[in-house]
Design a protein around this nucleic acid. Structure first.
Lengths: 213, 213
DNA sequence: AGTACCCAATTTGCATGCAAATTGAAAGAC
DNA sequence: GTCTTTCAATTTGCATGCAAATTGGGTACT
């Protein structure tokens, strides 16, 4: 997120709205009225307007003839976004395989080994270790713009309970994917690491696609 | 570009400023004063402010303690952005290779053949046919979000005379790259098409990197 | 000459006001 | 009962006003 500036009122409003949308507190298709939001957040319409425009640029809300509405994604758009994510993070994995120090690869491997111990029911650890694994790989690619683009694409998955509904088999399959990725990275095989990551991401999002309502 | 809405005054201002920055009319590091811009464009500060915030989100300008400045890219950022572009457009080429109809591939091939006839000095045709070639491939990937992401990444190359300074050898090398790409697409070899496009893009941007001042 | 300090000018952040666009619903026609 | 038309209420787009933050430069002091 290329955050615009410091802790102005406007930025506070923007962040509040962004979180409200991403967490699903504001439902897709929900209509947004400047004056209502202004009253609710106890500011004037000016910072509200500025925030809404930025949210629209970011694709979180869409213009209506009058006002704005929280964006609703079609399943087609969901798939398209998954492809973007797979393309970006797959490429990041290739770069990471080329550029990571041995220490970084050992660290990623350690995160993976740690995750193998996590039980499905331990939701927090499950989500955290997964995030750590992906974050460590992305960071090892050493490309800030690429990192930004990847995290930005994640914003589009709001209102999808990505983490909640994983079964035992799904977690096993995910860990097997991770194993394939880290194995290729250790062998410094960028092409395999990349395609393994792509497939992992497309598989994972396919699982969650059915919850995109 | 996920354009926010219709032809309001604010959008006009936004577009005017965006073009001014991208074309280099406003130089990197140039300081932007709301009131000055307002007077210059004969509107109040409100639409100016809204536009500046959106430009900042898009990464074209950066905040200063007081006001904004046209962003100046380091050569490191230039390279990083080239990698993002190569990753995205390479992946689009792979998808296009899988998804294009035979007719679409024939069309792309025809564009390429046509370009082979263009002389270096014919700048307009040279730039146009190159764009057509890339656009046709990107469109054939049939992924709107991916298309948006690719064109968005192009915005970061403002103030670089990308088209102007191509030599005879550089154009030949570019055409050879294009040949490799279309050959792989005809063979429906997505992996080769993808890496050929990646290499083409990284090579091309490496040529222009020296003009990034 | 150099340094510290202070004040006026500049510039932003935000609130408010008003005209124009949009809407929904009531009233009227058939 | 249904379709039109009209009009008041709602809502946005933009301009303007004002307080607070920032700055630059002049003056006093060493």
């Amino acid at each position: 997120m290329a955050d615009t500036a410091g802790a102005s009122r406007s930025n506070g409003v923007y962040e509040w709205l962004r979180v409200a949308i991403v967490t699903g507190e504001m439902r897709p298709n929900e209509h947004l009225i400047e004056a209502d939001l202004a009253q609710r957040l106890a500011v004037s319409r000016t910072p509200i307007r500025e925030s809404l425009q930025r949210l629209a640029d970011g694709g979180l809300i869409v213009p209506r003839k009058r006002g704005w509405a929280v964006r609703e994604y079609t399943s087609q758009e969901f798939i398209e976004n998954s492809e973007v994510r797979a393309g970006l993070e797959g490429y990041a994995t290739r770069l990471a395989t080329m550029r990571a120090t041995d220490e970084q690869i050992a660290e990623i491997s350690a995160i993976h080994e740690h995750r193998l111990q996590i039980k499905v029911v331990d939701e927090k650890s499950r989500v955290d270790t997964n995030r750590n694994f992906h974050d460590a790989i992305i960071a090892a690619a050493q490309n800030k713009r690429l990192t930004d683009a990847i995290y930005r694409s994640g914003q589009f998955y709001f209102n999808v309970p990505l983490a909640r509904l994983t079964t035992e088999e799904e977690m096993k399959a995910g860990n097997a994917d991770h194993q394939r990725i880290i194995d290729a990275m250790i062998r410094r095989d960028g092409a395999v690491a990349e395609s393994a990551m792509r497939e992992h991401i497309m598989r994972t999002f396919a699982i969650f696609q059915r919850f995109n309502r």
